[in-house]
């Protein structure tokens, strides 16, 4: 283990938390955690300023290990709690970490509304295409035809593309990465945290235990190779035909636009209301 990594572990992981962690050996969640910590370190944020909020799932266990203000909410609801925290204390950097089921099944409504509302939050969704924690049931991102414990004959539903969903819902910053493209991932997470507005990073990750095993990719390396072979950088994808993109997915920044931020708009409302203007908000100066 390199010295740099050891230093970061000491700086950001909790000393009073009993390790080992709950994740299976080779799980992509650890790679996402690593990318997150390096991104935070590169930005130079203080640990006190950061809130890491999660939902329920394997991904949901991430906050317990890191030395920030950490919150493990209910299944699918991380963004709602994060919204309250951010509104109450806009100076905090609030990051929500979610699973694919967490963010787009039970929490799907919160996800699209958070994207539309545009608080300055960062949402990281670890998309392992399955319900990991509960033992391999299908999720809204399980590919058509795949096998899951609740799809023993093959799945007949169609998957969400999380990043595209976020773009459509209005999120001003949307990116997709994978746990294979580690440096890109770190960079995307950093950009998302620095983005002023609701920023989404979808991370394609491996759950070789609950997804891979049932779908001819029973080990992390096979799954990573699959990511390597199917991920196309957005820049390159723009010059590719629809046929060439068949079965592939893009990685990189999918959207980066400016939009008014909720907390700043609300501050204008406060000031306007106090001055006696009935509405001091958007479009009224």
């Amino acid at each position: 283990m390199s010295q740099g990594v050891t230093k970061l572990i000491h700086k950001y992981l909790r000393h009073d938390k009993k390790f080992p962690h709950v994740w299976c050996p080779g799980c992509g969640n650890g790679i996402v955690l690593g990318a997150l910590i390096r991104a935070i370190d590169r930005i130079g944020l203080e640990k006190d300023e950061i809130v890491l909020a999660s939902g329920i799932g394997c991904s949901g266990r991430m906050p317990v290990y890191v030395d920030f203000n950490t919150l493990h909410t209910t299944h699918g609801r991380a963004l709602t709690f994060a919204t309250g925290i951010k509104l109450a204390k806009p100076s905090l950097t609030v990051i929500a970490i979610m699973g694919d089921g967490d963010a787009t099944a039970i929490g799907g409504n919160h996800f699209i509304h958070a994207a539309r509302r545009n608080l300055n939050l960062t949402a990281i969704i670890i998309n392992n295409q399955i319900y990991g924690m509960t033992g391999g049931q299908s999720s809204p991102t399980t590919p058509y035809g795949s096998y899951a414990t609740t799809a023993p004959y093959g799945l007949i539903e169609h998957a969400f593309s999380i990043a595209e969903l976020a773009v459509t819902a209005g999120a001003p910053f949307v990116a997709r990465g994978t746990v294979y493209h580690v440096e890109t991932l770190e960079d995307l997470v950093k950009k998302a945290i620095l983005k002023r507005g609701f920023a989404v990073v979808e991370v394609i990750s491996n759950c070789h235990v609950q997804y891979g095993r049932r779908n001819n990719m029973g080990d992390p390396v096979t799954m990573m190779k699959w990511m390597r072979d199917h991920a196309i950088r957005v820049e390159k994808a723009s010059s590719m035909s629809i046929d060439d993109m068949e079965g592939k997915f893009t990685i990189g920044v999918l959207a980066d636009v400016e939009k008014p931020i909720y907390t700043e708009e609300y501050q204008k409302i406060r000031e306007g209301a106090i001055k006696g203007r009935p509405t001091g908000g958007p479009g009224h100066g």
Partner: peptide, 10 residues
């Protein structure tokens, strides 16, 4: 959820 979040922030 938001109410609990805001309360956690004080």
């Amino acid at each position: 959820g938001a109410v609990i979040g805001a309360s956690l922030a004080g």
